[in-house]
Each structure stands twice: as structure tokens, then as C-alpha cells.
């Protein structure tokens, strides 16, 4: 366990309820977890178990109905919309399953978008280096429509990394990719943790993908039902089968 360093992200009794009345859905129930700095965490669970909701709450994209989310020293639940947006912009990177890019901007512009929004000076060499690190150094001038799905996902990762955030969140980043390109993306995420000590949280359905992580969280019906350290694909698959049986 990584007890030495302070957690990068801490969730405490986080509950998320969608809708009201008869449409009421409790997507997360009292979820509490610490995600240590410099670790790679995978989140797994059956469809509808609340994985995406968990990720959105942890990343400050959505507000929990109750409970607290801390990013480093910052309590997210008390922040104004502007302050929360700034946190997302400067300290968090997010990769969605699809539709990650603005179609009218080039790769370079998409990657540098968070910097522009922060009105920071854009250092072309830095952008090039980030693009290089995801293997897209040659494609800076292309539009998203001219890239393959895997390449688009890697552009999204580059954009998530460009602000050197404390934590990167990815929701099924390999869901739409074949095994080989999926593997490239996963290796990329792994290397972020290993090389620059950033924290990565990833939702996935794939036990092989989960095996790239340091730790796997299992969700079922909105509850955190288990944790597995040093996962392997076999162990995860076994656990998942059980989860499904429950």
C-alpha cells in the first residue's frame, strides 16, 4: 500500500442520486476511497454499477449529492463553478470514451486547448514534446477526422497531459480500440505514472487493461465492493465473474 504519500484524490462517503421521484436512481452509495499519488488505479464493475459516475465525481465534472471529494488539499464540493472549472483545467486531465476532440481544430490546437483556456503562453516545443510522447509528433497539423480512432484517443491523452495535471482520469479509453492500439494507449498511461509520478484513474471492462494498473477498485450497484492490489488479468477476470454472479 502507498501509505507514505498523501492521497492525490480522496472520496469520502460520496453519494450520487440522479433524478427524483419515481425516476430516482442512486448511482453511488457512500463510496469512500483514497487514491495515492503516483499510482495507476482501474475501476471495474458491471454495466450501470456507477463507474462513470464515480469518475465524474472524482474529477470534478459532476457534483456528488452528498459526501466530499478532495483533490490534494482542495475540497471540491465547496467550490464555485468557476473555481471548479479552474481545477479541471489546471490540475486534472480527462479522457472520454469517444468524442474527445473539437473537429475544427488541428491536433496541435486540440492538445493546447486547456492552455489557451487558461490564457497561458503556448510553448510550441512543449506541445510538440507532449505529442511526441503519445507518438503523434508527425500529425500535429491534422484534423481529428484525418486520424484513426486510436490516434484520436492518444490526442485526447496528450491534451489531458499538457497541463501536467495532478491526476488523469480516463473513462473506458480503450473501449473503442482493437487489442493492439488499446495496448499502446494502456502502455502510455502506465508510463505517465512511472515516468512523471502522476496519478491515473481509469474505468475499464477489460481484465487485461485492468492488469496494467497498480490497483483495481470493484463497484457493484453503486457500492465499492472490493479492492485488488497488484492485479493480473486472470485474478481480475475471476473476480468479475463472481461480481456478476452476486
Amino acid at each position: 500500500m502507498h501509505t507514505m504519500t498523501a492521497p492525490a484524490v480522496r472520496l469520502d462517503a460520496v453519494t450520487k442520486i440522479y433524478g427524483s421521484g419515481e425516476n430516482r436512481v442512486t448511482a453511488l452509495r457512500e463510496v469512500g476511497v483514497d487514491l495515492a499519488t503516483g499510482t495507476f488505479t482501474a475501476v471495474m464493475g458491471p454495466s450501470g454499477s456507477g463507474k462513470s459516475t464515480f469518475l465524474h465525481c472524482a474529477a470534478g465534472l459532476d457534483r456528488p449529492t452528498s459526501g466530499s471529494v478532495r483533490l490534494g488539499d482542495t475540497e471540491l464540493s465547496g467550490l464555485s463553478d468557476n473555481a471548479l472549472t479552474e481545477v479541471r483545467r489546471d490540475r486534472i486531465g480527462f479522457v472520454f470514451q469517444a468524442y474527445n476532440l473539437l473537429s475544427s481544430l488541428t491536433v496541435e490546437d486540440n492538445v493546447s486547448l486547456p492552455l489557451r483556456l487558461a490564457r497561458r503562453k503556448i510553448d510550441a516545443r512543449w506541445i510538440a514534446r507532449v505529442a511526441e510522447s503519445v507518438g503523434l509528433g508527425d500529425h500535429l497539423d491534422r484534423r481529428p477526422a484525418q486520424l484513426s480512432g486510436g490516434q484520436q484517443q492518444r490526442v485526447a491523452i496528450a491534451r489531458a497531459l499538457v497541463t501536467q495535471p495532478d491526476a488523469v482520469f480516463a473513462d473506458e479509453p480503450t473501449g473503442a480500440l482493437d487489442t493492439r492500439t488499446g495496448r499502446q494507449v494502456l502502455e502510455l498511461l502506465r508510463s505517465i505514472v512511472d515516468d512523471s509520478g502522476q496519478t491515473v484513474v481509469m474505468v475499464t471492462h477489460d481484465p487485461v487493461a485492468a492488469s496494467f494498473a497498480d490497483r483495481v477498485l470493484f463497484l457493484a450497484d453503486g457500492r465499492l465492493t472490493g479492492v485488488m492490489d497488484a492485479p493480473t488479468a486472470e485474478l481480475v477476470a475471476e473476480r468479475m465473474t463472481k461480481l456478476g454472479a452476486w
Partner: peptide, 10 residues
């Protein structure tokens, strides 16, 4: 998407 990657309302 813009909002998600950090564009403020303004």
C-alpha cells in the same frame, strides 16, 4: 467538451 476540459461559462 470545452466545459469539461476547463472552459469557464464566461
Amino acid at each position: 467538451l470545452l466545459r469539461a476540459v476547463g472552459a469557464k461559462r464566461r
